[in-house]
């Protein structure tokens, strides 16, 4: 059992085998192997408040269904089930997704990272630049000239039939 401590000082006790899904944590554990018990505490301070729960839920679901099986011999039915579960898991607001991506990036959890990136790209798909700007709250600081002339003329083809 190892202990993860989040930025708001909450503790999470996780089985080592489960937390191993994060390559970063796995390396840390590997480094500290054979040392004192206190070293089984890992700070994950760069992660926002409600994210550790989500990550651990994700780990547990995937721990029950190891990656190797997921690819090679998993039955069609089980694969469908996992897919549905993942769709539900990633069906959150863009802030959470953003934090999940950052967490997956710093903890090095490839499947979570890919899944979250895919979801974000799904959200952005088939939307105009204005819509994307609204969803992701990106503030465009372009000057009027840039906005109206320079950018549209750069790659004129992408702006044609915007809503086709």
């Amino acid at each position: 059992m190892i202990t993860l401590i989040s930025s708001d000082k909450r503790k999470f006790h996780v089985l080592e085998e489960v937390a191993n899904q994060s390559l970063t944590i796995r390396d840390v554990i590997e480094d500290r192997r054979g040392r004192r018990r206190a070293d089984r505490i890992i700070l994950v301070t760069n992660i926002n408040s409600k994210i550790p729960e989500k990550v651990i839920v994700y780990w547990l679901r995937h721990f029950l269904m190891p990656e190797e099986i997921a690819h090679a011999s998993m039955s069609h039915k089980k694969a469908e089930k996992l897919k549905k579960w993942e769709a539900k898991f990633f069906d959150t607001d863009i802030d959470t997704l953003n934090d999940l991506i950052l967490a997956a990036d710093s903890l090095d959890i490839p499947s979570l990272f890919d899944g979250a990136c895919e979801k974000v790209s799904d959200i952005l798909k088939n939307r105009s630049a204005e819509e994307v700007g609204e969803i992701s709250k990106i503030e465009n600081e372009f000057t009027h000239e840039e906005e109206e002339e320079e950018i549209p003329s750069e790659n004129a083809w992408v702006w044609r039939n915007e809503f086709a």
Partner: peptide, 29 residues
């Protein structure tokens, strides 16, 4: 939110979009 992501992550998300839509993000900011 999205702009604060590391550059590599942004590129990864763009790579998942259809190419044309990825180019359109040049207008975001």
């Amino acid at each position: 939110f999205l702009s604060n992501l590391p550059e590599l992550v942004k590129v990864k998300i763009l790579a998942l979009l259809p190419f044309k839509e990825a180019v359109r993000t040049s207008r975001l900011s």
